[in-house]
Design a protein around this nucleic acid. Structure first.
Lengths: 193, 193
DNA sequence: CTAGGGTGTTACCGGTCTGTAACTTCCAGA
DNA sequence: TCTGGAAGTTACAGACCGGTAACACCCTAG
């Protein structure tokens, strides 16, 4: 009925995709494994045959989400081959599009907030994935010919991270509405030096 | 023994203070009312005589935290009476000090992430408190003689919000380490126009 | 046709959660 | 000294949680 993911895919894939969606919408601690398996059209035993624990499932979801995000970078390269500055502007554009009205923020950042135990197994994965994203943006800024590429990349990172969390507390009409203006202003300012 | 808040204060005050601390450290969904009352040196019945539900306690905690934050603004005025630009720099300084190694971020933003249900009673409170903070920063920027005060205030807001969530995912050595440089650069840039 | 692995089903374990009931204890103020 | 309200205590309800055991099923590869 309302499932949508039940089709002829393997249970493991359905669980992974459903869990990603539900973790994103309702938060990690807001979703139980029972609810995930039911929405995925399967059952708890099958989940535990493929994932040794809920924590393991969380980690796999984060990896899958990061992999999806990484694919977007390929689109930038495909749309503007070799033109790194255009790709940087495309990044700003894409980022602003993710700030839609019902934005629930970055899954990795949200997970870091929810999983407050410093020794939670997902934390090191989050750190790794976030650092990889950071290096990508730094490289893009550098290849776009910007001086102080690290500083620009870090500033843009914080702006986006802040916009995504700000949306959840004050909504889309808050400070995050000005994200494109801020980001483009920063890029212009850094390029002028 | 390890309590520290037990003293001769009223149970309601001890519960409120303890709950603020524990919600901040472990997250809202990561702390049960039993744990709060035990740490506060009281019991569950007393909690429910003073707060009609956990949600109500959450809201009171957020209000108390916001009230504490508001008091910091008075310190700025006391330290630099009438000098709004100096107060703005003091804000940057104070903000960066909050980005210490074990920073757990903004309680309101964290709550917004954790309480994903859009109709949760705490959500409207979070929005109100965050909007009040925003207006304060806008007024400070304007009174400091900055053109486009709203844009500067919103940019600084997003930067800080981003820095606080970034700390939780990648740690203090990540992008948030450059917060002061970014903020001061922005202020200088806006003032130059 | 048959064997076996992936899957579904049901029931259960021990623990935790919010919230309540009924009763006792304590202490301050009259 | 008496009294009334605040606070503590114990027990419990009802729900949900992550995770497991035992068993039935079905479909495909040989």
């Amino acid at each position: 009925m309302t499932d949508g993911v039940v089709e002829r895919t393997r249970p493991r894939d359905r669980i992974l995709e459903t869990a990603q969606d539900m973790f994103h919408k309702h938060g990690i601690k807001g979703v139980g494994v029972d609810a995930i398996t039911e929405a995925a059209g399967t059952n708890k035993m099958t989940l535990y045959r493929h994932f040794e624990s809920k924590d393991e499932l969380i980690i796999e979801c984060l990896r899958a989400t990061a992999a999806k995000a990484a694919r977007i970078w390929d689109e930038f390269e495909a749309a503007h081959p070799g033109d790194k500055l255009a790709q940087l502007h495309a990044w700003v554009q894409k980022a602003s599009e993710m700030l839609s009205a019902d934005c629930r923020g970055c899954d990795m950042a949200n997970a870091a907030v929810e999983l407050s135990e410093t020794d939670h197994p997902a934390r090191r994965v989050i750190k790794e994935l976030k650092e990889a994203q950071r290096e990508k943006l730094v490289a893009l800024c550098r290849d776009a010919g910007v001086g102080q590429a690290e500083l620009l990349a870090d500033t843009l990172s914080l702006l986006l991270e802040g916009a995504r969390v700000s949306m959840q507390s004050v909504g889309a009409e808050g400070p995050s509405a000005q994200f494109v203006r801020m980001a483009e202003g920063l890029i212009a300012s850094f390029r002028a030096r």
